[in-house]
Amino acid sequence: MGKIIIYEYADFQGLSKEFTSDIASLKDADWNDLASSAKVIGQPWVAYERENYGGRFLVLEEGEHNFVGKDMNNTISSLQMITEDLSNPEITLYEHPNYQGKSRIITEATNLAAGHDNNIMSSHKVQRGVWLLCECRDGSGIQYLAREHEHLPDYNAIKFNDKLSFLRPLRPGCGC
């Protein structure tokens, strides 16, 4: 499946701790608010600023990640591994709440800001994969993680209505 190794300092220095399953509170492992870098092997992980997978989050796909100079440096309090099958992703976006209006099926990273559908989507259904939905075309701003088989009838519930500009599926890791 995968694992994540978090490090006390940037560039994978200092103390480290390896996880192979979700941890709702890094306090339980004496690692709350300490991580400055991480290595991910296999499936992606999500690092959250609060316990129990709450608050802002950072998606960590396979590879090496430094948090120094980023908003999430020394603020990670829980970790969750993405366990869904990430091959052949598909999401359907809808212009209006309750899956009404114009619909669009997306299967790859898409910059809606470069076309006709920027800032007009209001609901979605995820058929396959896990999707990162972003307010800004560069992946910044408000973000939302849409999980497999999730049906979200109204983006007002997540304060995201008519704000979607970019989305991409999470990439599966090879576990090499």
Rank of each mutant, 00 (worst) to 15 (best):
P97S: 04
K163P: 03
L58V: 02
G69Q: 07
A29K: 05
D33R: 03
N118D: 10
P89S: 07
G129F: 05
S37C: 11
Q100A: 13
E90D: 09
T107N: 13
V59R: 08
E64R: 05
S37D: 01
H124Q: 12
P153D: 11
S36C: 02
E90L: 15
R168N: 12
S122E: 05
F67N: 00
T83Y: 07
I142C: 14
L60D: 03
W45E: 11
C136G: 14
D22G: 06
R56S: 08
Q127P: 11
D162S: 07
W31A: 02
E64G: 10
T83A: 11
L152R: 05
I142H: 14
S123L: 09
C134N: 03
D162A: 11
Q43K: 13
V46G: 02
Y155F: 08
I41T: 15
A10R: 13
S36K: 00
T92C: 00
S123G: 04
L112D: 02
Y155W: 09
D117P: 13
F57K: 09
I120A: 06
F57E: 02
Q127C: 13
G129Y: 05
V46C: 01
L164P: 05
S165N: 06
P97T: 03
G129R: 01
K102C: 13
D28W: 06
N111H: 09
T107R: 13
I4W: 00
M121C: 12
D11E: 12
P172I: 14
G2P: 07
S16M: 12
L86K: 03
H124C: 14
K70G: 06
R128I: 09
N119L: 05
H151T: 15
A114Q: 15
L86W: 06
A113S: 15
G129V: 00
S78Y: 07
F19M: 04
N32F: 03
L86P: 09
N73S: 10
S123I: 00
E61V: 00
E150V: 02
F57C: 02
V59S: 06
D154W: 03
S21G: 08
W31I: 03
G55T: 07
I106W: 04
E61C: 07
S103L: 07
S36Y: 04
Q143P: 07
M121S: 14
D28G: 09
C136W: 15
E135S: 11
R171A: 13
C174A: 15
G129K: 01
N98L: 13
T92D: 07
N118S: 11
M1T: 10
T92R: 10
L26A: 00
I23P: 01
Q13N: 15
Y53W: 09
D117T: 06
V59I: 07
L170G: 04
N73D: 04
M72E: 01
H65P: 09
E148W: 08
S122G: 09
G69I: 08
D117M: 02
P44T: 01
N156R: 15
Y144S: 00
S36R: 00
G63E: 13
I41A: 06
D22W: 04
S122K: 04
R168I: 06
R137Y: 14
Q100Y: 11
P172R: 04
D117W: 08
E51H: 11
L79C: 01
D138G: 01
N118P: 10
K163R: 11
